[in-house]
Design a protein around this nucleic acid. Structure first.
Length: 450
DNA sequence: ATGTCC
């Protein structure tokens, strides 16, 4: 069955898929992005509707096919916890800070090279790398259980969540622990990055994209495997296949996975804040000014949320989707963001703009969520076939973005691999989900190797 | 995304 052909525009920058799926799905795309979407994406959207007590599904404009469900997918369940709709990089997300330093300093080749090198000295880069913040077991336990608070950050100030509570009875699994304990203050590889940028007022910013490294990956792997066994024993197989796993609340595994996600999220929050400290020191040293942490937020998570639009509490899974609470959202009560909504951090590709958005009241139509990036439009292998090293190096030089202090540009992360940020942001703004507060232009990008 | 196969 061709599901794409069953979608119909319902206005407000949204398509509705109602036929051929268990519950209606709202797909927030403009005509251009919808036209480009392939049927495989819609088959994965169908998978997202198949989980037992799923109540609502939303697709963001940067959506592309992922593991079982799309990257760019929001799923609200009554209680069921699903693995694929969180993904392997539990707690992966963004952090941004701004300064009063003029963009001219950032564009100075000598200064941006020095900044890049100072960052590379302080933060571990690449897959398989250990971190630059060694901790003992006691400190690691504290970080995993109390995230930002274990590092002394003031509550509700810097972060989407200071930490997600982890039950005392839950024990950190040995294997993920043995990997994670050495990986704090490390960036990882793939699409993770640290980027120097400037805003419309010509002030320097830094954005960071990273996650829970081997710690979250280890737990995701563990609970996806156990989910497969759990469903096999129950004789259940969803249309999405053996990998479309979940835990129902009557299982002890539900409790375990809930805590594993919380722990992964806490690790990721702490990792981003530790990177912020390292990058902040580099920034101060090179540019001579104290930057201000704007916000820190995840785009791969399941957490229990008050969902006013659905009239209750739900388990909101965001896989490659960013939380977008507008002003007055009940979950912002008591934070500094209650009157304005919290900042939404959206990166573009390494050659493209990034954006800081604030949610509009219309975000209630999208499960209080927007996109998390621009969406890949080319596989990594296709990129390596299509582009040469010298081409992408020249491309970034032309865009005036220094990569890894003058090193090679990772071909499969080059701008041609991603959709234009403008199209995706236009979809979000056009749908009335959020407005643009800052547009950030890249100056220097720091990336790990695969 | 990931000590990209314990």
């Amino acid at each position: 069955m061709n599901l794409k052909s069953l979608c119909r525009p319902i206005g407000g920058g949204c398509y509705l898929l109602e036929e051929g799926v268990r519950i209606p799905v709202r797909i927030f795309m403009n005509e251009t992005l919808f036209a480009e979407a392939e049927e495989a994406l819609f088959q994965q959207i169908k998978n997202a509707t198949e989980f037992p007590d799923v109540r609502d599904v939303v697709i963001t404009p940067d959506a592309h096919t992922g593991y079982v469900v799309p990257v760019g997918c929001v799923i609200a369940t009554e209680q069921t916890l699903c693995q694929a709709p969180v993904g392997y990089d539990i707690g992966c997300g963004m952090m941004a800070f701004r300064s009063d330093v003029d963009k001219g300093k950032g564009l100075d080749d000598r200064l941006r090279r020095r900044f890049s090198e100072e960052v590379m000295d302080r933060v571990a880069l690449g897959v398989g790398e250990g971190g630059k913040y060694p901790v003992d077991e006691k400190k690691f336990e504290e970080i995993v259980r109390f995230g930002a608070e274990a590092l002394g950050y003031e509550r509700g100030n810097a972060s989407e969540r200071d930490f997600i509570p982890v039950d005392d009875r839950w024990k950190i699994p040995a294997k993920p622990k043995s990997r994670g304990i050495h990986q704090l203050r490390s960036l990882g590889g793939g699409n993770h990055f640290i980027e120097l940028q400037y805003d419309q007022e010509e002030h320097l910013w830094v954005m960071v994209h990273t996650g829970s490294r081997g710690f979250g990956h280890g737990m995701a792997t563990e609970y996806i495997q156990r989910g497969k066994e759990y469903l096999r024993q129950k004789g259940i197989r969803l249309a999405g296949g053996a990998e479309a796993t979940y835990f129902s609340p009557d299982s002890p595994l539900w409790f375990e996975y809930k805590n594993a996600v919380a722990a992964g999220a806490n690790f990721a929050i702490a990792n981003r804040l530790l990177i912020w400290e390292g990058v902040g020191r580099a920034f101060r040293k090179v540019f001579g000014s104290e930057p201000e942490l704007v916000y820190e937020i995840s785009h791969n998570l399941v957490q229990e949320e008050e969902v006013p639009a659905l009239g209750g509490k739900f388990w909101v899974h965001r896989k490659g989707a960013t939380r977008a609470f507008p002003a007055g959202h009940p979950m912002l009560k008591g934070t500094r963001w209650y009157e304005t909504g919290h900042p939404i951090l959206i990166p573009g590709s390494m050659g493209d703009k990034s954006y800081i958005l604030y949610a509009e009241p219309g975000a209630e139509r999208s499960l209080y969520s927007v996109n998390h990036g621009c969406g890949r439009r080319m596989s990594r292998s296709a990129a390596k076939q299509q582009f040469t090293q010298s081409y992408v190096n020249r491309q970034m030089a032309t865009l005036n973005v220094m990569v890894n202090a003058g090193g090679n540009v990772p071909i499969d992360e080059s701008p041609g691999c991603y959709k234009p940020a403008e199209d995706v942001i236009a979809s979000v703004v056009g749908a009335g989900l959020a407005r643009v507060a800052y547009v950030l232009t890249p100056i220097a990008s720091i990336k790990g190797n695969d």
